[in-house]
Nucleic acid binder design. Sequence first.
DNA 1: GGCATACTAGAATATTGATTCTAGAACCTG
DNA 2: CAGGTTCTAGAATCAATATTCTAGTATGCC
Lengths: 192, 192
Amino acid sequence: MALAKFTPDGILDACAEEVLANGGDVRIADIASRLGAPTGSIYHRFGSRQELLVRLWLRSVGRFHVDYLAAGDQDDPERALLAMAECVVAFSRDHQLDAVAMTLYRHSRLVLTAPESCREDVENINVGIHDRLAVLAERRYEHTTERHRFLVRLAAAESPYGLVRPYLWNSVPASLPEVVVASSRAILALGD
Amino acid sequence: MALAKFTPDGILDACAEEVLANGGDVRIADIASRLGAPTGSIYHRFGSRQELLVRLWLRSVGRFHVDYLAAGDQDDPERALLAMAECVVAFSRDHQLDAVAMTLYRHSRLVLTAPESCREDVENINVGIHDRLAVLAERRYEHTTERHRFLVRLAAAESPYGLVRPYLWNSVPASLPEVVVASSRAILALGD
DNA sequence: GGCATACTAGAATATTGATTCTAGAACCTG
DNA sequence: CAGGTTCTAGAATCAATATTCTAGTATGCC
């Protein structure tokens, strides 16, 4: 087995840099030249441009989920949810390449358009998170309803993500965590 | 002068439908066939695909701004800002095509990449809003600082937009306005 | 009516960039 | 070391689609 000069992760890294630099319309040739590789080496690892991009998205989302679940791993459900909200901001600040890569697709659309080889991973990527949020909703509220689960999703995920999103391509303001927590707390309070 | 069978607005409409249906990668041929027009008629109105898409974005953002400014046109600054926040949701619910078209670009990037013929419009499109928010920040807070302006922008624009964004492609939940107001109110309160 | 203009029509062309192919080098196994 | 496998290399091919071109048609104006 020859030594691998261009690994899948290395290629994904270059791809991420390209996405940050030039937006979603990444060219294979650009990734290759950024890496000093021939285009053939990229196709040796990934079946198509589509697949490469989806793999990048999956890797970034997966990395985020590690931090996200860790942040929410504490007893008090309110604290856990607010920590998760803050984690969205912290991750975005500390992992810009991944954060930007995550903007490449929306999950709900990707489920329909991902290449066959990634379909299953795309379909499953959110289940752990979804379950965890459901559990936290149960613990945070008595007589948990659909509305409570909705509020939890907004407070712990959609609101914080919406708040950092505009800053992903530059730098995240230092006071954003504070804002995110205030917003999420207020949203959770609507369920009381 | 021959009667215009395919007007610029009609073409933009078809383009918007295409964006909603198939995401940002719109093909000229698809717009044309949706319209029952030859591709030539599209190029008769727009210099390039790029320009067409940017014009669509500009039209949608402009339409939104009309509603947005109207919503904020009231004396009490807190009320005005919260009304603007709600307006983001209402507009997204009532004008799905425009709301989705607005996701085609980020302003800060478009400023750099827009075709020459649109550059100026892109550069200017936000100035009215920017000024208005600055004025409202002055009125809402005593001794207004940069931080206050930051909070105002988050409360009236970025937070509500971030909260509806995930729902743009389907339907906007009925309880979202309530959530948006709670969030924005909490954010504004951070400046007191 | 006859000319000029604005538009429709859609085929022909050009371009861009993804993908494939062939060759060769590096390494591992037995 | 011979054979097999994995990988690099980069040129050649292919496909998709944006754009251009030429012709034809309707309309308004003088």
